[in-house]
Design a protein around this nucleic acid. Structure first.
Lengths: 157, 157
DNA sequence: GCAAGATGGTTTAATATTAAAATATCAGTT
DNA sequence: AACTGATATTTTAATATTAAACCATCTTGC
């Protein structure tokens, strides 16, 4: 579904690429989130567990930055994961402002159990693209995401 | 930032493409949403206005499907747009289950005023990719989004 | 040492979102 | 005409998210 906007070709093209990008991400996220909800996890909760699983223990600010969420939201997400005993908080003794979040053994084994199926679903969803296409998509998105994050707000006015 | 997951190359590649796709979409959406909030519009509210602006009047179900939101959410979004007098509801006289949503003149002129700058921001954000890259991204995302939406849930278990 | 500012985390208030149940309407069958 | 099932919308309850104010802690410059 192309845009119905009429304007300079450069803008039309940017708009069409944008629309398809957002739509693809939304459609895929929806499928993945449905599967995660079967484990009682939200997308952000899973994002926290995944970060800890692959990167090791992190403080809340690092998680907020990585997951592009607000600090306040991460506080609540960690609260809920703590209630499920999947993570635990540990105050940093050197700098008491920081709280390091660790996976509990229960959290660790949950991730070991569900992560393979998660990757399997992603592989299925991405499977409509061949390896060369997936690599091309990765590079294009990487450049795009990097650029967007570095762009200072004034440039967009 | 590549995945730290170790597994079959096919899965690694799918995961890396997926991560960069989601991240690019999130980063770009964040920038666009910040700009929209200056007009007092949320992403979904703008999505509704944009659909009506370019496609003409639509019923709520059509908007929900197009924007990938729940019916209940659209009811609330339309409520809020109606309060701002940007849209109006009109019960369909032939089939009274449907409610057609129209842009008001105020809504129409708002879109005429802000849409060019919106496209400008998108053009800037996408501008890190050259025309060929944008076209490639569009095609890859289109294929991906289409596939994800058509995939029946059982295939993902 | 101490004031000033920076940083990480929490709280609060408001809004957004969804799933599920409820309501209203229509279409087809008997 | 009454019943059944489908569809569009609304309501409800629960959760997610953010921005902004706030508290605690650290760092810097004097």
């Amino acid at each position: 579904m192309p845009t119905h906007y009429s304007g300079p070709p450069q803008e039309i093209q940017a708009l069409n690429a944008f629309i398809n990008l957002i739509r693809a991400a939304d459609s895929i996220s929806a499928k993945i989130n449905t599967a995660l909800s079967d484990y009682g996890l939200t997308e952000t909760q899973f994002g926290v567990l995944e970060s800890l699983f692959h990167l090791g223990s992190l403080c809340q600010k690092a998680l907020a930055d990585k997951l592009l969420k607000s600090n306040g939201n991460i506080t609540m997400v960690i609260d809920n994961l703590e209630k499920q005993e999947l993570v635990l908080r540990q105050r940093d003794s050197r700098d008491r402002r920081y709280i390091t979040i660790h996976l509990t053994p229960k959290g660790q084994s949950l991730m070991e159990k569900i992560f393979p199926a998660h990757v399997g679903r992603i592989t299925t969803l991405m499977g409509v693209l061949n390896p060369e296409e997936q690599e091309a998509l990765r590079q294009l998105c990487r450049k795009l995401g990097k650029h967007a994050q570095e762009l200072c707000p004034e440039t967009l006015r």
